[in-house]
């Protein structure tokens, strides 16, 4: 008789259930109408089933986004869990689409589903990749721009996981500042 360990047939549960959203820029529709929920998952196996099934970010048309958020949080500033929050922002050069975009986005996803930020993972709302002709962006969104300890810990771990060199600075910006900025740059509340 063969003994089968539970490891062989029970999927590995994640701490959180996650929802993957897709945004396609169709100017004839409203912003919200362009945002579609693709699927939700709450196990390691189902994460990969979804990830392996969809296009890499570098294959998306310009103007598209993927958003991975905890179930119950909508990927927009207005959500109750986002409105006092902000994001660690990674801006990529055009050359980095080929070299880094897919690698950075997968690393971001693994940080989220694996709860890489320890107790401060509770502050994480989700992550977004924006595919844009002028330069792609990846960000991790957190719930409260006043939670300095959580934000700095998340930023340090994230920068390390992406392999960003120490001399390169990444910044955290509040959504309020991003929404009300007048120029093309938003001031950083924190940097690591």
């Amino acid at each position: 008789q063969e003994i089968v360990s539970p490891e062989d047939y029970i999927k590995h549960p994640l701490q959180n259930r996650w929802a993957l959203w897709f945004f396609k820029n169709d100017k004839s529709k409203t912003w919200q109408a362009n945002l579609r929920l693709i699927s939700k998952f709450d196990t390691v196996e189902d994460f990969w089933a979804l990830y392996n099934h969809i296009q890499l970010s570098s294959n998306l048309m310009s103007g598209c986004d993927y958003c991975l958020f905890k179930d119950g949080i909508e990927p927009m500033w207005e959500d109750e869990r986002n409105k006092r929050g902000g994001r660690w922002l990674i801006t990529l050069s055009k050359q980095q689409r080929r070299a880094d975009l897919d690698r950075f986005w997968l690393e971001t996803l693994l940080c989220l589903v694996g709860e890489a930020f320890d107790d401060h993972s509770d502050d994480v709302c989700g992550a977004v990749v924006n595919v844009r002709a002028k330069g792609d962006k990846i960000s991790i969104w957190t719930t409260d721009f006043e939670n300095k300890d959580a934000i700095v810990h998340i930023g340090q771990v994230y920068k390390d996981r992406l392999g960003v060199p120490p001399k390169v600075i990444i910044g955290y910006q509040s959504h309020t500042d991003t929404a009300t900025k007048s120029g093309s740059t938003t001031k950083n509340k924190f940097v690591v």
Partner: peptide
């Protein structure tokens, strides 16, 4: 505690056959 999974553990499941 939290269910934390490190990157190598997670990556190990990318091409596993689906559970029955």
């Amino acid at each position: 505690g939290k269910r934390q999974y490190n990157r190598d553990f997670l990556l190990g499941f990318q091409f596993m056959p689906a559970c029955v």
